[in-house]
Amino acid sequence: MRLSGAVLPYLAAAALVLTVTGLGWGLFVSPADWQQGDAVRIMYVHVPCAWLASAGYTGLAVCSILSLIWRHPLADLAAVEIGPVGAGFTALCLATGSLWGKPMWGAWWVWDARLTSVLVLFFLYLGHVALVRAFDDPTRGYRAGAILALVGAVNLPIIKFSVDWWNTLHQPASIGLTGAPSMAPAMLWPLLIAALGYTLVFATIVTVRLRAAVMERRIRGLLMARAASESGA
């Protein structure tokens, strides 16, 4: 926690610089696609949000494992703070995808496997956000939320491979661990920088929220201790 305080300014600064660079490059410098024209620029917002929707949920699942098996108190708080942020970025992914789909595909929304599984991810986030706050005893909320998060994690490989397993309107991945990316370098670079920038923005938001949550818990503890000592005196 002390460490996070020291790192935070640098994290926030790097997040700002990289995001502005990536988005500015994508919007003004990078070339238009040969068939999509300028609409391809929506990719520089959409793809980082889609990546963070999945990565954020992976973080949520890891926190849930730490919470269920090792009962790590910070993991509970982290899961509570990741939830709403992940939901926000998933909503952003769906909204920008819709704005990209209308001019290119000719439809705001279709029920193909990729779009549907991401919508399910969004509802899993919302369910987690509601569930961890639904109990009077916070520990029970953390426990229920962790189980929901882990059950929902089965959706992550479905999202990733939906475009390979089934016919979808959504195109398959352009960038993979193996093989050359099927994207020109002049478009790949701003995309990677924007993705890294958004990731650091996400990390900054979660770190700040987590620090606030730890302080709020400390305040509650101090107030309770004070009330107890006053009533005992």
């Binding site: 040969w34 990719m43 290119m104 000719g106 195109q171 398959p172 352009s174 099927s182 994207m183 478009m187």
Partner: peptide, 18 residues
């Protein structure tokens, strides 16, 4: 009754396509 375009995962500038 409806036609949707399905673009592939290849992205490139006009010059590369040419």
């Amino acid at each position: 009754s409806e036609v949707l375009a399905k673009h592939d995962e290849t992205y490139m500038p006009k010059e590369v396509a040419e």
